[in-house]
């Protein structure tokens, strides 16, 4: 894969990568750092990508590892609940409460929700990205849906 092809693929996926990073990291700069680092690492390791149709799966896995590394460095010193004030005030109240609910999900379930419901990854791809089984993804999504239903009283109709 040459640089131009790589850049095209990454540019098309940047929003998706950001949302996955956001499912792991609270701070805006951490999210951007994770995405940047993942892109740089993916470029370095591009020769390990055996099937270019799996580019999204592959780079998202690299990104998740970067997010985990950043979390590890922080040792979760910034709790998920601490969001910069002012950011939330500008937003639709409904989106804010939805975010608060999603933020309260366990890490893995939150990422499953992002990948499956936001990014449109099917259960198989979600499982591949997260290094788990389809059964675990189905179970995780069911638990996430139930938790969100409890918290915001709404069903997922996506």
């Amino acid at each position: 894969m040459d640089k131009e092809q790589f850049a095209r693929q990454v540019t098309g996926l940047q929003g998706s990568l950001y949302r996955v990073a956001a499912s792991y990291l609270r701070g805006e700069s951490d999210r951007l750092d994770a995405v940047s680092e993942a892109i740089a690492r993916a470029w370095e390791k591009r020769y390990t990508l055996r099937d270019e149709t799996l580019f999204r799966t592959w780079i998202t896995r690299i990104l998740i590892r970067e997010c985990v590394n950043i979390q590890r460095r922080q040792k979760r010193s910034v709790p998920m609940e601490q969001m910069p004030e002012g950011e939330a005030a500008k937003e639709d109240e409904r989106i804010v409460s939805l975010r608060e609910a999603i933020d309260q999900l366990p890490q893995r379930h939150r990422t499953m929700v992002v990948l499956h419901y936001m990014e449109g990854c099917d259960v198989r791809e979600t499982a591949r990205i997260m290094g788990t089984t389809k059964g675990a993804v189905c179970a995780g999504l069911a638990r996430a849906r139930a938790a969100l239903r409890r918290m915001i009283g709404e069903e997922m109709d996506v």
């Binding site: 790589f6 990454v10 540019t11 940047q14 950001y18 956001a22 805006e28 892109i39 639709d92 996506v158």
Partner: peptide
Amino acid sequence: MKREDLMRVYEPKEGLEMRVKNVLNS
């Protein structure tokens, strides 16, 4: 809840595009 609502939950900020462009250029 609908997908468009969900997408807004973790909406990228303005800095993303520029940051990605800078990384790609480097």
